[in-house]
């Protein structure tokens, strides 16, 4: 018998790290479930992790490389596009899945209590596994071009910054996703906007083109898009191409903290009562 006394009243809950920690086993099992269920359900299994970025890269080469002839800063186009696509899809998957998390899991949330925050976190982690698989694909391409002489090896100690970039992407997806998920409990139509908005945002991000190739008058807009600077930085580390300013990183961190803390607050605010409205 534990002596812990819990008070249930109308006040909105406070984020409790201790409680999240108590449910860490659940977090691990949910990530595992996502992965296992994914490869068990499909014919090609984990191959799907590769098929999507490969085909998108192929389409980008056709569209932006061959037809529009947009610069890839002297890099092999497949490598250039693939680097942008895997990073972008990590962000967009996190965002889209998180933004519908309350409604997607309403059947579970309506029957049992656990810290709701576990679910969004599990989404970010599940997608990290997917990113890991896609990053291996990227490395294969990288090694191929290294051997065939398409690129020169130019990775310095900054390589260790890659996990931080990834963390940024994940936190952006989580933070924005939490805000949207909280709002969609009241505004249903917001969820339709998200899919569409993310698609549009991709074109305002340096996924299919380098920042240097952007038209002058949009350059500022594109460069303040946090996803752009993350992807630019990613390319800078791996290929030493692209433009990136360190001041932006500071702003980036501040913006992430702001978005995330707002997201967490609003999520906790709706968490206790959303079952009444969903």
């Amino acid at each position: 018998m534990s002596d812990e006394v819990r008070i249930i009243d109308s006040k909105h809950g406070k984020p409790s790290l201790f409680e999240l920690w108590r449910f860490k086993d659940l977090l691990f099992l949910l990530v595992r479930r996502d992965f296992v269920a994914f490869y068990k359900q499909t014919v090609f299994g984990p191959l799907w992790f590769f098929i999507q970025p490969l085909f998108t890269t192929f389409v980008f080469i056709l569209l932006f490389g061959n037809i529009a002839k947009i610069s890839t800063e002297g890099l092999p186009s497949s490598l250039f596009y693939l680097s942008g696509i895997i990073l972008w899809s990590y962000f967009s998957d996190c965002l889209i899945k998180t933004s519908t998390v309350l409604r997607d899991n309403a059947h579970i949330f309506g029957k049992v209590y656990f810290p709701r925050m576990i679910m969004p976190i599990s989404i970010v982690l599940s997608n990290l596994i997917k990113f890991g698989a896609q990053f291996i694909l990227f490395i294969l391409f990288y090694v191929y071009y290294l051997i065939s002489g398409g690129i020169k090896f130019d990775i310095g100690y900054t390589f260790f910054l890659l996990p931080i970039l990834l963390l940024f992407m994940g936190l952006w997806g989580l933070g924005l996703g939490l805000i949207i998920s909280a709002l969609t409990t009241k505004y249903r139509d917001l969820s339709y906007l998200v899919n569409f908005g993310v698609q549009l945002l991709m074109y305002a991000t340096t996924v299919a083109y380098p920042l240097s190739a952007a038209p002058e008058k949009f350059k500022f807009l594109i460069s303040i898009n946090p996803m752009s600077s993350i992807i630019e930085c990613f390319r800078l580390i791996l290929f030493d191409v692209g433009s990136f300013e360190w001041q932006l990183l500071i702003i980036q961190v501040l913006m992430i903290l702001l978005t995330l803390s707002f997201g967490i607050c609003i999520f906790f605010y709706v968490e206790r009562d959303f079952m009444d409205t969903v």
């Binding site: 249930i8 009243d9 109308s10 949330f109 309506g110 029957k111 049992v112 209590y113 009444d276």
Partner: peptide
């Protein structure tokens, strides 16, 4: 704790 009370505890 699936939903919260309006009043009371």
């Amino acid at each position: 704790r699936i939903t919260s009370p309006t009043l009371g505890k």
